[in-house]
Design a protein around this nucleic acid. Structure first.
Lengths: 215, 215, 215, 215
DNA sequence: CATGAATGAGTGTTCATTCAT
DNA sequence: AATGAATGAACACTCATTCAT
């Protein structure tokens, strides 16, 4: 016999996550100042007052959306790089895949656009995001690239520049999706887009291309 | 002797541009909803009411900032591609230089970040921006790449993908500058950043690399 | 063996009084509108909902605080005046002592300040308080003064004025204690204050002062 | 020819005083928390937003009402005591008359009741009021009584107690008027009330009562 | 009985917009 | 043309009240 938790109770524990999900969507779509808390509550299926049972203020809600949304996922990634066995190209492909599965293909993909839009209004949150997400994301990629260089799989490229080259198209993909992509149509299918860009990138990274031509 | 227009007169004619410049800075920094027209007026050195002599509404001001800021410059670029004589690599380098001079190194560099942030709130403006700026910018680049391919300077790359590869790092440069860059310090010097990325990119484009390895 | 009611049971019957005591403190301190029912409940050690098991509304709670707090005590005073044997000066002194013991030195001393503050918001309650407390309190004092005049102990003073003269300093004592006294320190010790004022007052009332000079 | 200042301009300078007058009435009537700023604005004949052109917040308005209402008047009183020529009884009568004219018979008479009601919610304002009004008011009275004692007009009474005896009935008069007096009718006509109480008080103060009767 | 999650009407505050000067 | 006082709609936030558990 399944012990069914009463819905009222279940709700109470699920509410913060439901509210944060609703808030993320609206913050991404309309920006922080342009989002009405009443709309957030309505999208989560509760009333305005309920929101304040779980978050002290609009700003506290915003910070929770950013902090609890992204950080836990990065921690999984760190473990992956340390324990991965196999070629670095596979590791890179796996990292991209994980990112796509846990962030890029979920509502969390809106966070970069949101953080870009609101960094000026929330400097200390931006600093937190920089330290907790950007620095750590770059660390992950740096260790991956260095692993490939050390093993001889990759050429001795300038690592910091290569990190940018790898991240920029990925970021533009999700930034586009939650901004101009909404009204002007996607230029590319995301999967294809990711595939072709990383083929190019990996091609540029690989040492000793088999036939003397890259790409 | 040049007849110097009296300052009062000069002022009157310069007002809209001064207001738009002030508005651009604040819109970029705080977003559309987060910007107070009183602050815009104060930054332009006029009173709140004066703003309404030149712009019908906050939204009208916003649209003017976007429309009048970017379009005229693109038109110059179109002429450049049509009339340029010299290698396509030089043309590309000239285009980048012009962009840097007229946009990247001016307050207009904030427009992409602004448009990304507000596209969701101003769909018809986003469509306008898409058609007037993005499509035309891509056209410029497409014609440039095709010129290079036709002349044999460039390899037969996938043009649309190459356009993305060229634009993405440039956009991330200015997006970063007006968002997280403000509180976390620039990762790179812009000139160096542009140089190294375009070396990579051009390297990938060039046909018949001298030494058999590209990058 | 005394049957000790189990604490749970005792609690249930004591709840209304506990809630009213908590409410009185907060109403006196912050006023009716400034008091949150959640704070009242918390101070009484129960939850917000429990309060509504005993009182229909915030206003009903407020009325109960006033009504049940003051009236029963006045009835004791009425009996005292009727049955007292001894000098009127002693009666007056006894009345003051009783007042001090049952009101002045208990949280009920806050009621006058509370009633003064909220009379404008609760006119019908103010009327009730006027009829049930003030009129009856003045009656008590009037009968006392008339007793003293009839017996020749007191001079034939203007009774209504004398009532004011007797009450005013006493009221100011408790009003001060629950208002400015809280932040600026008591000017006087209550016992001393009461003593010296009633010495003065009684001196003024007494007939045939022994040595021709009063005070 | 009367130079008529345009009403718009006249208004701007008069607005703060008009708003403070409206606010005083409502704060006295309903208390701070029970007063809606919209009602204050409406009573002053302006809209809610206008209030914020002159006062930063509800609390700032409240503080201005207290501070600008009473303090300037006390300063006039200080001059009077220093420069007065004539009997101290006349000085006392003049002080009472001035108080009645500038405070007791104006809306400012509501300030004591207001301060009593809200002292708990605004401790620092209460301290200010204590120092700026109560201490200085008592100083005025103390110097007056000491003047009378020094000149032989008054007996050597306990000055601090006498201050209380003089102030208490006056304060109760205005407290009553703005609280229970509103719904239960005035007990006494103010002028008569003041007159009879001060006859009693002065009688008690006077040295060498002519006919061997005190009061 | 008791709880505390949920509600929504109400209020303080902001700010785009207007208009008399 | 320019000002800035005035407006009022809109929104963040509070809290008395309800009710399922």
């Amino acid at each position: 016999m399944e012990a069914v938790t009463p819905p009222r109770q279940r709700r109470k524990e699920a509410r913060p996550a439901e509210l944060m999900a609703a808030a993320l969507e609206l913050f991404v779509e309309k920006g922080f100042a342009g989002t009405r808390l009443e709309d957030v509550a309505a999208r989560a299926g509760v009333s305005k007052g309920t929101l304040y049972l779980y978050f002290d203020s609009k700003e506290a809600l915003f910070k929770s959306v950013i902090q609890e949304g992204i950080v836990p996922i990065l921690e999984e990634g760190a473990g992956l790089v340390d324990s991965f066995e196999g070629s670095t190209a596979d590791l890179l492909r796996t990292l991209i895949g994980e990112w796509w599965q846990h962030i890029g293909n979920t509502p969390l993909a809106g966070v970069p656009k949101l953080m870009i839009s609101e960094a000026g209004n929330f400097p200390e949150l931006a600093t937190y995001y920089h330290d907790a997400v950007i620095v750590r994301g770059r660390d992950l990629m740096r260790r991956t690239l260095q692993r490939g260089i050390a093993s001889g799989e990759f050429r001795r490229v300038d690592v910091e520049t290569a990190i940018d080259v790898i991240f920029a198209p990925v970021l533009m993909l999700v930034i586009w999706r939650y901004s101009l992509g909404a009204c002007c149509g996607m230029a590319h299918d995301p999967q294809t887009y990711l595939q072709s860009h990383f083929d190019l990138t990996l091609g540029g990274l690989m040492a000793a291309p088999p036939h003397g031509t890259v790409r």
